[in-house]
Simulated assay, not measured.
Amino acid sequence: MRVVIVGASGNAGTALLRRLHEEPDLELSGVSRRRPPPTGPYADVDWHSIDIGTDEAGVRLTELFTGADAVVNLAWQIQPSHDQRRLYRTNVLGSRTVFRAAIAAGVPALVHASSVGVYAPGPKRAFVRETWLRTGVAESSYSRHKALVERMLDEIESDHPTLRIVRLRPGLIFQRDAGAEIARYFAGPLLPANLLRFGRIPIVPSHPGLRMQAVHADDVADAFLRVLRADVRGAFNLAAGPVLDADIVGRAFHGVRLRVPGLLLEGAAALTWQLRLQPVDRGWVRLALKAPLMSCDRAAAALGWRPRTDAVSALRELVAGIAGEAGTESPPLADDPGLPGRLGGLLRGRLPGTGNPY
């Protein structure tokens, strides 16, 4: 089986390559804007350097996809948050280019990485199924883009019924190797990462809406493999228990829970983002407060998927990775201290939320 993975050098892509390397019958091709070195999980992959947001990407992708048994689309930009045009170009227009190339090449299966961000605001004390309204959270550009891309897939499913389309919708994806990346993309250069070495988070913000789901990257990779092996279609939610809230995180990391109003959380994020102190705008806070909790019953029933790592253990691993500045040699997961979002980058005038880390 020949599988082409678009966006194969990021957080989920790195874990997926690790998992697929264990399957002797798979032939892997990887697409990224910048090729990672052919070591570790990036070895034994036929790499192609393609920026899916460019005009020529469609022709190159069609050639690459021809003869493939499946295309997996993981490509997505979270940064630079201060360049919304670039994010739209890659996330929405780039995804459209990938989909059109898969159709033109006659690929039989298209697997797309969506997320909980596609869903409309929903309950924090109940779990929604894959049929929940998919209009996103309006204040979050990430969420809006996820909803737009799934709308494209709806149209493609209608126009091309023989194409097997699967959408995986994970919660927050954690692993140790993503520590440096997630710190750069979501915390910024002022994060006192050294304090995390002791496995403590001193202050844990508490709010009724701050109840989120997470899943280990290796469990997400396992779900992708199961989808590639099974004749399934449609959407699958992916998350591990327990739901992460202030009480659970506070106990796990010996932190003091501090009740914080939602408006204060949003205002603080907006102000510090505008001042280029950290890379996360208020839309991310709004998404965290409004995104629903997901039921994963369909993944269990149709795929036999169950996470091996619980959400608290996955979070512990990520925190250890942040403290240890863990990364890989892939550009998106690099631990380079001079990149935007790191203190060295700030000292060099590379502000959080700027530059293209992919």
Rank of each mutant, 00 (worst) to 15 (best):
A240L: 05
R129K: 13
H48N: 13
L148C: 06
P192H: 10
T14F: 07
G67K: 07
G250N: 03
L191W: 12
G106I: 11
T272P: 00
S49T: 15
S206D: 15
V215R: 00
R2W: 05
V227T: 01
A187G: 02
L333G: 06
A300S: 14
S9F: 02
Q79C: 07
A300L: 12
G188M: 07
P205W: 00
P205S: 12
E329L: 14
S95I: 02
D25Q: 14
M294Y: 07
I50N: 02
H145T: 08
E139C: 01
A178Q: 06
D336T: 10
R211G: 04
L293H: 09
P36R: 00
M212D: 04
G179P: 03
W284H: 13
G7M: 07
H145V: 03
F65P: 00
G53P: 08
V98K: 03
A301K: 14
P189L: 12
M212W: 09
R251W: 08
D222I: 02
R306G: 14
L168F: 06
A240C: 09
L64E: 03
A102S: 14
E329K: 08
G122Y: 12
V31M: 05
V227R: 00
R129C: 11
R125C: 10
R18F: 04
A314M: 04
D245Y: 10
N11Y: 03
H48P: 03
N237G: 08
A240H: 01
D159G: 13
L210N: 08
R151H: 15
G304F: 05
L228Q: 00
L87E: 03
I203T: 13
M1N: 07
T62P: 04
F224M: 00
N356C: 03
R306W: 06
L16V: 01
F65Y: 14
A252E: 05
G30N: 01
P292W: 06
P357D: 10
L339Q: 15
T272Y: 05
G122N: 12
S49K: 02
L238Q: 05
S295V: 10
R144N: 05
L228V: 11
R251D: 15
P121F: 12
G338S: 13
A120N: 10
F99V: 15
D25Y: 08
P192D: 10
E23L: 11
I156F: 12
G255N: 09
A323E: 11
G117H: 13
W132C: 07
A70I: 01
V260L: 13
A214T: 01
I52H: 07
E317M: 08
I50M: 04
Q213H: 09
F127E: 13
N237Q: 12
P292H: 08
E63Y: 02
A43K: 02
S32A: 15
V249P: 00
E56R: 14
D83A: 09
L258K: 11
A104N: 13
D219Q: 02
A120I: 10
P332E: 09
P332K: 11
A12M: 12
E130A: 12
D281F: 03
L265D: 05
V243M: 09
V72G: 02
